[in-house]
Amino acid sequence: MARKLNMRIWRGDSVDGALQDVQVEANEGEVVLDVIHRVQATQMGDLAVRWNCKAGKCGSCSMEINGKPRLACMTQVASYGEEETITVTPLRAFPVIKDLVTDVSFNYKKAMEIPAYAPPSDLKPGEARMQQVDVERSQEFRKCIECFLCQDTCHVIRDHEENKKSFAGPRFFIRIAELDMHPLDTLRNRKQTAQEEHGLGMCNITKCCTEVCPEHIRITDNAIIPMKERVVDVKYDPVRWLGSKIRKREGIV
């Protein structure tokens, strides 16, 4: 059954912009991205919106719907009340380009700063062997679709532009955790650099990244807190530090 839906859509660019009211038809079972497309087709031909898969897998349609960072293609119109106005804005942690499209290149820069997977140097292609129990933890983090909703919601950079230079963000903390827990990764200083270069200590584990992740990755519990504990092992725990000096290894077995 079609119904009239009241929406407010943010329109503008990096200089100026405002919320604009529109009324649009919504059919049963539709998602917010569907009605945005209908607005684009019928009333705002030049409305900019980024999307690709419409299946929650490409991470392109990230925006804020009624103030919450969400994937527009995975947000049912029916999850809002009949009388409710649905407000959509671009991500508020990144520079806006036009309408609902933001410049998320910050995240690609941060991705490049994370040292890559470092397998043993004598390992030939096709020779890697791992036990399932050893890769399980890292596999959870491979579900990431790089929607950057976690990066958008993280108050460390959302509310403090100046922290962007020193903070990699939750998406890259799961990347660091993935590699540090990887059975074949040989890079030994991931814990120190997580703290000293990528800003792990800036995170105050308030869990907003976990709350918004569409892949339900338990970012804080399974990546950030375990990494914080690993950092304590090598930086703030005199007993383990001493142990690692005596045994000449990093305290991780």
């Binding site: 943010w10 912009g17 405002a18 804005t89 671009p90 508020r92 806006v96 509310d159 403090h160």
Partner: peptide, 12 residues
């Protein structure tokens, strides 16, 4: 102005 009110962000 910082945070969500930074110059480059969407004016809200």
């Amino acid at each position: 102005m910082s945070g969500v009110f930074s110059p480059s962000r969407a004016k809200i």
